[in-house]
């Protein structure tokens, strides 16, 4: 049901020529090389260890794996992860 809602919202965003993160609340991820990752539109931190950071978003969880991972800063809307990032995984 949730998956269906997300699909509808994303379709609507595309029809209205709006960015999908507005209606669907999809997270925005931007990376600078392999060392920096910015995540926007996240809901909370599920797990944080040196090698793995799991973040909850509206569309599901994002697993960031790597080595010596640090959270440089995090606010209500966005966060910045630094370290050697090896994997980014999207889970439902």
């Amino acid at each position: 049901m949730k998956q269906r809602t997300i699909e509808i919202m994303e379709g609507l965003s595309e029809t209205m020529k709006l960015p999908s993160d507005i209606l669907a609340g999809a997270p925005l991820l931007s990376m600078v090389g392999q060392r920096q990752l910015f995540i926007e539109n996240y809901k909370g931190i599920i797990e944080y260890t040196q090698d793995c950071i799991r973040v909850q978003t509206k569309i599901g969880r994002i697993h960031v794996e790597g080595k010596r991972l640090n959270i440089e800063y995090y606010t209500v809307d966005d966060m910045k992860i630094t370290g050697y990032i090896t994997t980014i995984q999207f889970c439902e």
Binding site: I45, I46, E47, Y48, T49, E72
Partner: peptide, 26 residues
């Protein structure tokens, strides 16, 4: 549960930076 601590800080807008995890010490 340090993650919960971090989430609550975020919700209450208590600003933290340079969070570092080293052998379960945050």
């Amino acid at each position: 549960s340090p993650e919960r601590f971090l989430n609550l800080c975020r919700m209450r807008e208590l600003y933290t930076w340079n969070i570092n995890c080293d052998k379960n010490q945050y």
